[in-house]
Amino acid sequence: MVKQGLIFAAAALLAAPALAADQVSLVSEVFVEKVVVAPNGRASTLLKQPDVVMPGDNLVFVVKYRNQGAQSARNFILTNPMPNAVAFREAAGEGALFSVDGGKSWGRLGELKVQGSDRRLRSARPDDVTHVRWAFRQPLPAGASGKVTFRGTVR
């Protein structure tokens, strides 16, 4: 607990100078899908915010954003690097852009190529994704909020 408190304090110190300009807030949440069997034998999928997961677990990532400033935010781009231990599966809805090279270049998944184990280029697969991002065409108006979601599997 002491250690956590220290990290918290350090983070607050670092964030303090930028606070005045912190017009947009982001909240990241991660859920795990658990298949549960009820006493009547029916299986259903439950979403939990886990402390621990296992290889093979399916995760749902949610990033909530809110423009808490008084002005609109232009060129709003939301980026989520994939944790190394998670294989990207799919993003909800349209409009997500992907990187398979650590965030250097971006595109639709079907347009991206990676070097296969035989050193030849092949079409990128979801589990090649290193970053997922949403680039908003319209400015994010003051007071606007929303969320983006995507799924991955613990490698």
Binding site: A21, Q23, V30, Q71, R74, I77, T79, V86
Partner: peptide
């Protein structure tokens, strides 16, 4: 024992 850490970030132009 591996920790999976997830952090998103946003960039935008202020007023």
């Amino acid at each position: 024992g591996t920790t999976i850490s997830n952090t998103a970030s946003a960039t935008y132009n202020d007023p």
